[in-house]
Nucleic acid binder design. Sequence first.
DNA 1: AATACGACCGACCGATCGGTAGTTTACAGA
DNA 2: TCTGTAAACTACCGATCGGTCGGTCGTATT
Lengths: 188, 188
Amino acid sequence: MKATLDQIVLEARELFRERGYAGASMQELADRVGLKKPSLYTRFPNKEALVSDVMALTFEETFADWPEECSEWMPMYETIVHRIAATLSDRKRCIGLHLAYGVSETTPAAAAAVRDYFAALRDRMAEILSAGVGPERAEDMATDALTRLEGATLWIVTAGDMRPMERAVASLIAEARTASAQTSHNNA
Amino acid sequence: MKATLDQIVLEARELFRERGYAGASMQELADRVGLKKPSLYTRFPNKEALVSDVMALTFEETFADWPEECSEWMPMYETIVHRIAATLSDRKRCIGLHLAYGVSETTPAAAAAVRDYFAALRDRMAEILSAGVGPERAEDMATDALTRLEGATLWIVTAGDMRPMERAVASLIAEARTASAQTSHNNA
DNA sequence: AATACGACCGACCGATCGGTAGTTTACAGA
DNA sequence: TCTGTAAACTACCGATCGGTCGGTCGTATT
């Protein structure tokens, strides 16, 4: 095998991130991994099938080497917020957001994969937050946290400005602390 | 003229919003406005040139029938936040964000148009906020407000969920009020 | 040595892409 | 009524799109 499956998925992710779903071509993916186009179709039935593998890989990477469940929630929340922000700042754009806008009803499997990715990410963050701020507020807080992290990529993409992302990270962590303090106070 | 320039730009915007820059084709735009493809090229030199017209139209629409400058800042800020949120909720996605991700160094004029659009929008919001929270905090607050509004489209696009957008609007307005109160207090 | 198989590739498919050359049509002004 | 002009048209360009066909090659099994 000239290229492993993981290499292809990694390169596909980079291509989707740069050019979006419609703008990414199987020909360029083949060129990047050093294969001819027909060889790609021995591994993937079609272009759309790449998307779910790309999202699955991205989710796994986000939670690679994840600490034990017995850890305290606040360091865990800080870690995941920092990891997401670091990836977005590093790659200059969000592959999930680009695909979310790029897929449509003509690519239902891809749309489902993107939807499930963000739902799973939100659920994992809500699970962590739940230990600190209670289960009622956790899901909304996780959703809004992703809203701000993803939204901050707008300024990276258009102007190369990282400061909105830095402010988002700082205020998310600060808000989690205050929310936790209020919850403890209410429970006391 | 079978179709006015404005009709074409309006339809181009809808097409870009749905399919992104790469996914939108001149053929489909021609079909939608009831023209043949070559007729489009009598009005626009190329596909890329549509982008700046689309963004200009969108900016003008956002500030159509804008109240006099002598108005109080808080109603003005509420109005613009509500207008942006209403458009995003209504169209289910943001044309600016879709284009921001969709254009690249191969379409520099389009990239510049999108960058300038968001910069101008942020500046107008900062100008309004400046009267309430002071010029130092205004620009960051305006930037972060757009971050949250744009980010909230993620959940509309992927899951049809409007609640994150509603929460973003509510908390933006609430934060503007508190920030204003703090500023008044400091000045007093 | 015969066989079976997965990885790979050259050549090709119909369709569509952005864009253009050359021609017709409709209408305004003289 | 004639004429100039702009808008729209038919027909086409080379390139690229996602995807497929038929076959080659190396290797592992028997």
